[in-house]
């Protein structure tokens, strides 16, 4: 299906004909149902979404709109119960556990609301983690990790543990960790939810600059001023896309 011998170009050629050639995320009638003790809850009711390379998309919507479910599916943490999903040409909707882990490792960089750094590891080691699971050797790993930390402005804080860093610095470490594997998409789930507004602004400026340097970013938030940084907003309601529009504004 997702023949590993194919290069990106060849894989893209296998996508449906109406999909733009530079699409990173393509979903077709994506559905996710949960069985809650006999009662079926339809969290996503057929979402069609195409996100192209170097887009900066904010996914918005009230709680219960299916926002988190969509995030989990896009992030390959969960599998859909219906429809199809291609990530960077990989048809991930039908992959099994180990292949999903590999996709998460290579194609996706996660940034969480609660940072989710390993408390006992240094910043550098936290950033090294995805490379460790990619099977990279120690020396190469440390080099790439320190480059990523320099990129987010933490070149002088590499050997600090998370509890020795401020909230903003912790989130920068998390962003460095998300970027270190050069993923196809940066997936940020309420990245400023635990930060004060000044620090939030700093983090969003960082996102802007990453976008400027060519990174594709999907941002889940319910805060409008955070969403303002994105070039496109996708609003979900009751498991379907309610509105999908370009904002045209650069943060």
């Amino acid at each position: 299906m997702t023949g590993t011998i194919l290069n990106t170009e060849e894989r893209m050629a296998m996508l449906p004909a109406d999909v733009p050639r530079d699409a990173v995320i393509v979903t077709r009638n994506l559905q996710r149902e949960y069985d809650m003790g006999g009662e079926v809850v339809r969290a996503l009711r057929g979402v069609n979404l195409t996100i192209r390379k170097n887009e900066f998309v904010a996914v918005m919507g009230p709680s219960g709109s299916g926002k988190s479910t969509l995030m989990n599916l896009i992030g390959c943490l969960d599998s859909p119960t219906g429809g199809e999903y291609w990530l960077n040409g990989h048809r991930v909707s039908e992959l099994e556990d180990n292949e999903l882990a590999r996709i998460r490792n290579k194609e996706i960089g996660f940034v969480f609301q609660t940072f989710n750094l390993l408390p006992r590891a240094t910043g550098l080691h936290n950033v090294e983690l995805p490379l460790i699971y990619a099977g990279m050797s120690g020396k190469e790993r440390r080099e790439l990790a320190s480059q990523a930390l320099v990129k987010v402005g933490l070149g002088d804080r590499m050997s600090h543990r998370p509890n020795e860093l401020s909230g903003g610095q912790r989130q920068r470490v998390a962003i460095a960790r998300a970027l270190v594997n050069s993923p196809s998409i940066l997936l940020a789930d309420e990245p400023t939810g635990n930060l004060d507004s000044a620090t939030s602004e700093e983090i969003m400026v960082l996102f802007d600059s990453l976008h400027d340097s060519g990174q594709t970013i999907v941002l889940v938030t319910h805060e409008h001023d955070i969403a303002q940084h994105a070039r496109r907003q996708v609003h979900l309601k009751d498991g379907s896309v309610e509105r999908d529009f370009e904002t045209g504004r650069k943060g």
Partner: peptide
């Protein structure tokens, strides 16, 4: 959870 999100397999 974090390790899995970052690409750790079940075996890892």
């Amino acid at each position: 959870g974090v390790r899995k999100a970052l690409g750790a397999t079940r075996l890892n």
